[in-house]
C-alpha cells in the first residue's frame, strides 16, 4: 500500500474499510449464533423464573426452614438440594449429592449478597437476599469439591467456604432410605 492522494485513493481506502467492517460484523453474528446455539442445546441456561422469599422469615416457615435444608431424594429419582448462605457460612456447610443424577440446587441468602461456586464445575450462582436461586447440576464423578462464597459479604468473607461431597449413586440411595434431609456435615 502506498499513500495515495486524490479521488482514487479515497475510493480504495473506503472499499478496504467496508470489507473489514463486513468481516467484523460476520465475526460478531457468528459469536451471537454460537451463544444462542449453546444456550438452546446445552443444559446450562439461566434460571427461567424470578422467585422471591423473605430473608427475615426463612427460619420460621417455608422451604428454607432449618429442618428442610440439605439434600432430599425426590420420588422421580432426582435430587433437590436446599441451602442458605449467611455471614459467614453455608447451611449445610457440606452438601451431599449422588453421582450421575440430576440435581436441583435451590438456595438463598439470609442476610447480604453471597455466591455459590463449586470448584471444578461450572455451578456458579449469586445468592441475593429476597430471591431464590435455582441451578440444575449433574456430577459425573464421585469426589470432594470446595464451595467458596464468591461475593464479598463483609469482613468474614475469606472464611466462608463450604464443601460438596459427591458419592456413589447406590450408597446415596441407601442413606436416603429414611426420607430425611441428608448432608455430610462432620464427615
Amino acid at each position: 500500500m502506498t499513500v495515495q492522494d486524490g479521488h482514487h485513493g479515497a475510493e480504495v481506502a473506503e472499499r478496504t474499510e467496508k470489507r473489514w467492517a463486513m468481516i467484523s460484523i460476520i465475526i460478531i453474528v457468528m459469536l451471537v449464533l454460537l451463544a444462542a446455539f449453546a444456550g438452546i442445546h446445552q443444559a446450562t441456561m439461566p434460571q427461567a423464573r424470578v422467585e422471591t422469599t423473605d430473608p427475615a422469615r426463612l427460619h420460621l416457615s417455608g422451604e428454607f426452614v432449618e429442618s428442610n435444608l440439605g439434600t432430599a431424594a425426590e420420588a422421580d429419582g432426582t435430587v433437590t438440594v436446599r441451602a442458605i448462605g449467611q455471614q459467614y457460612s453455608f447451611t449445610p456447610s457440606c452438601i451431599l449429592v449422588p453421582a450421575q443424577t440430576p440435581v436441583t440446587l435451590r438456595a438463598t441468602s439470609a442476610d447480604v449478597v453471597h455466591g455459590i461456586l463449586i470448584q471444578g464445575t461450572n455451578v456458579n450462582t449469586m445468592l441475593v437476599p429476597g430471591y431464590v436461586s435455582e441451578q440444575f447440576m449433574r456430577f459425573e464423578k464421585t469426589g470432594d469439591h470446595l464451595m467458596p462464597c464468591q461475593e464479598f459479604c463483609s469482613f468474614g468473607h475469606e472464611g466462608m467456604w463450604g464443601k460438596v461431597k459427591v458419592i456413589d449413586k447406590t450408597e446415596f440411595a441407601s442413606r436416603a432410605k429414611n426420607r430425611g434431609r441428608l448432608s455430610c456435615v462432620g464427615e
Binding site: 459469536l31 451463544a35 446445552q42 441456561m45 455466591g115 461456586l117 461450572n122 456458579n124
Partner: peptide
C-alpha cells in the same frame, strides 16, 4: 465472559 455458558465457569472468580 459475554457468553452465559462460558461465564458460569469463571463468574466472580
Amino acid at each position: 465472559n459475554m457468553s452465559y455458558q462460558l461465564d458460569t465457569t469463571v463468574h466472580n472468580t
